[in-house]
Computed example of a mutant assay.
Amino acid sequence: MTLLDLVQAARPELTRSPARRLIAEGGVRINGMKCLDVEELASVRTHDVLQAGRRRWFKLAVNGS
């Protein structure tokens, strides 16, 4: 799953272009680390924290299958 796919799963109201813009402008962090590459593979674990925007925080739950 790419970072763009992860952001779209967390914020389904965003289309691809606004989600790309959010990532490129530094509005996405995983566990406090800024993510800037849209096509980066998101390596996340259960209980990681995704911040997608200024006020949107998500605690991730990874499905094993």
Rank of each mutant, 00 (worst) to 15 (best):
D5L: 14
D5R: 15
D5S: 15
D5V: 14
L6E: 03
L6Q: 06
L6H: 03
V7R: 06
Q8M: 15
A9K: 15
A9Y: 05
A9R: 13
A10G: 11
R11F: 04
R11V: 15
R11C: 13
R11N: 12
P12V: 09
E13V: 10
E13A: 11
L14A: 06
L14M: 08
L14R: 05
L14E: 03
T15H: 11
R16T: 14
R16L: 07
S17F: 05
S17T: 13
S17M: 10
S17E: 12
S17N: 13
P18E: 03
P18V: 08
P18F: 03
A19I: 09
R20I: 11
R20K: 15
R21W: 03
L22W: 04
L22V: 07
I23H: 01
I23C: 00
I23L: 00
I23T: 01
I23F: 01
A24C: 01
A24T: 09
A24Q: 10
A24Y: 00
E25C: 03
E25A: 10
G26E: 00
G26S: 05
G26P: 03
G27Y: 00
G27R: 02
G27D: 01
V28N: 06
V28D: 04
V28W: 04
V28K: 06
V28T: 09
V28G: 07
V28C: 06
R29E: 12
R29C: 09
R29I: 02
I30L: 15
I30N: 02
I30D: 00
I30H: 01
I30M: 08
N31H: 07
G32H: 04
G32C: 07
G32F: 02
G32P: 07
M33Q: 13
M33N: 14
M33I: 12
K34E: 12
C35W: 05
C35Y: 05
C35P: 00
L36G: 11
L36P: 02
L36R: 13
D37F: 05
D37N: 10
V38N: 04
V38A: 08
E39F: 04
E39K: 13
E40R: 14
E40G: 04
E40S: 11
E40V: 09
E40H: 09
E40I: 09
E40K: 13
E40P: 01
L41Y: 09
A42F: 04
A42M: 06
S43Y: 08
S43T: 11
S43I: 09
S43L: 11
V44F: 08
V44P: 09
V44D: 06
R45N: 14
R45Y: 09
R45G: 14
T46I: 04
H47D: 13
D48K: 07
D48R: 05
V49N: 01
V49I: 13
V49P: 01
L50N: 00
L50Y: 01
Q51F: 00
Q51G: 02
Q51C: 07
Q51A: 11
